[in-house]
Structure formats: structure tokens, C-alpha cells
Simulated assay, not measured.
Amino acid sequence: MPKKILVTGASGWLGSKIVETLLTRGDAVVATDINVSPAIAALATREQRLTAVAADLGEWHQVMRLFEAHRPDAVIHAAAIVGVVQAADIPIKTQRVNVEGSINLFEAMRLNGVKRVVHISTEETYGDFLSPVIDEEHPQKPLSTYGLTKLAAEHFGRVYSRDHGLECINVRTCWVYGPHLPRLRMPRTFVEAALRGEPFHQPDGGNLAVDQVYIDDTVAGALLALDKPKHTYDAYNIATGVAPTLRDTAEAVNRAIPGAKITVGDSGPYHHGGKVLSAVKGALDISRARTELGYEPRYDLQRGIEATIAATRERMNSAPS
């Protein structure tokens, strides 16, 4: 039965994809962000089931008005300062958005009788992976500002679940990629250089193994968590279950684009943005999501890279010269 879903961070890359997918399957959506993007605003003029509302989750009265005016049935919480580098650059704002914004959201849910929220979390809450494949019971010892704030949001959700009967479900994804990734990191940098016919060499991190999940699979996992009638667990790894290296990623691009020359060196560990040391990574065990949610990733690395290339090529070809 279609429901009305509030999506926070709805103008962001992942949030907008969640909005589109919910509409496609027949739900009504209240899309909120601190600024409504032109794309979401335009979609709202064409789609009667979409309402776009500008609201700052850090401002309590705005969050309350959002719930009082629109009465959602459930929430997908994708609003955040995202990424290790960005969070490190603006730690105070990251705490305000990722932690205080989440608390305001949970409190407004409590006061308005909304029970379920799916919080888009991250593998950064785990810190260094202690084995090549980790499950949801792995210790959570984040090493980054981003991971620390997302873990705080998870824990506040647990408090609200225990004390107020909310259902705060955490979807821990990994390195999400796909068409139009807004951050200038791999595999976007690899793909765009290859399509321009330019060689690209990343000097470090070639042996870093990390689970990379295509955006459509991330959205599918979040919606499965949203729809499950009753949850035994409050956290699910949503990824692929395998961890290609950065060199594997470069080779996937080289296979997909004839003549591409994308290389990655071994000189030391990987640094996010060339400056923030990465935690030790690996693969996320997705057994729980498979068993409990029926989740199954549709995109392995090669298929995801090829889909990303196709969309990027189309965008580059249509751009004004």
C-alpha cells in the first residue's frame, strides 16, 4: 500500500535518487533539504505526489512544522555532511547537521507519532576493519569526524527506540558510486579522464581493498529496510560483499574504455582527497541483509563501472561546447 515518505537530504545525490525511486513505485514523497535543488523543484511541478519543502534540520521549529504540515508515515534520513574530507574541513557544521539534525528529527517523530526512520549510515562507523570481511557486530571505533558523527546519530536512534518506541534502522553502506557522483573522487576521476582520452595516475593506495556499491543497490537496500514489517536488527550492511582494490577499479575502467590508461601506484596508503588517511577497509558481509531483507546487489564492479561510463559519456556529449 503506498505511503507518504519524508526524505531528508532530498536534493543530494543519493537523496534525489531515493525520491525518484519512491515515486516510481507509487509512494507520495515529502522531499526536504536546506535548499531545494532545481531538479527536485522541477520534478515537483510535474509530479502531484511530490512535495518539495526547504527546511534546515538544525532548526527545531522548522523540523516540527515539517511534520505538523505534512504528516508522513515514515522517514528516510539521508541528510548529512557527507565524506571524510568534507567533514574534516568543517567539523562543527558536521556535528550540527549530522548529530543535532538527527536528534531534532527523532524528537519531531516522537512528538508526531511517526515510528520508523531509515538512517543512511556508513562503514566509516567501524574505523579500521579488523578482518577482510566484517559483519554488523564488528566494533564501531570510527577514526574520522564523519564516521564519529554518523555513529552518534546511530546511538541517539537507539536511545529513542528504547525510550520512545521509535524504529531507527541503520543502513550502513560503503563507497557508493555511480552516475554524476558529486565528489571528485574515484571512480569518477578515473572515468572522466578516460572518456577525455587522458591518462590518469593515482600515486598511492593501489592495494586498498574496499567494498564499492552502485547507487541503485544502495537505494534498493534502503527501501527494503523501510518496507520490512518487523525488524529483528537495527543495522544492516548494504554493499556487495566483495572488496576490489583501487587498482582493480582502474582496470575495470581500462577494460570498458578502449585505449584508457588509468593507473594506481603502491607508494603508501590511500589518503582521501590526497590529505586524510583512510581507515583500513575491506568487504561488508551482507548475509544479514540477504536473509532478513531479501537484499541482493545487482551490480558487480564491472557492471557498475560500465553503467557509470554510459551515463557520464551521455552527459559529457550533451554539455555545451
Rank of each mutant, 00 (worst) to 15 (best):
Q140A: 09
D216Y: 04
V171R: 04
E167A: 11
F200H: 12
E154G: 07
P203I: 07
L143Q: 15
G165I: 13
V133T: 15
V191Y: 03
L105C: 02
V133D: 10
V117K: 00
S144T: 14
F200G: 00
T145F: 02
L184S: 11
P139G: 11
G113L: 09
L166D: 03
I169P: 00
E136Y: 14
E154N: 07
A153Y: 01
A153M: 02
E192N: 05
T122Y: 03
N112F: 05
H138R: 13
R158D: 15
G197H: 12
I134V: 15
D217P: 09
A220E: 13
L130G: 05
E107Y: 09
E192Q: 08
A220L: 09
D163M: 13
V114Y: 07
D128H: 03
S131M: 04
C168V: 15
T149A: 10
I103E: 12
L184W: 10
C174T: 11
L181N: 07
P182Q: 02
L111D: 12
V191I: 15
F129P: 05
H138F: 08
Y160P: 03
V171S: 14
M109L: 07
V159K: 10
S131W: 00
T125E: 05
Y160E: 01
V114D: 12
Y146K: 02
P187D: 02
P142N: 08
G157A: 09
V213D: 06
V171T: 13
F190N: 01
H180F: 13
A194H: 12
T218P: 00
L111N: 11
E123V: 01
C174K: 02
P199G: 06
I215A: 14
S144E: 08
H164Q: 08
Q140Y: 00
G205W: 06
A220I: 00
T189Y: 03
L184E: 15
L111P: 06
R116D: 09
L181E: 06
D217N: 10
Q212V: 09
F106I: 06
L130F: 06
H164L: 10
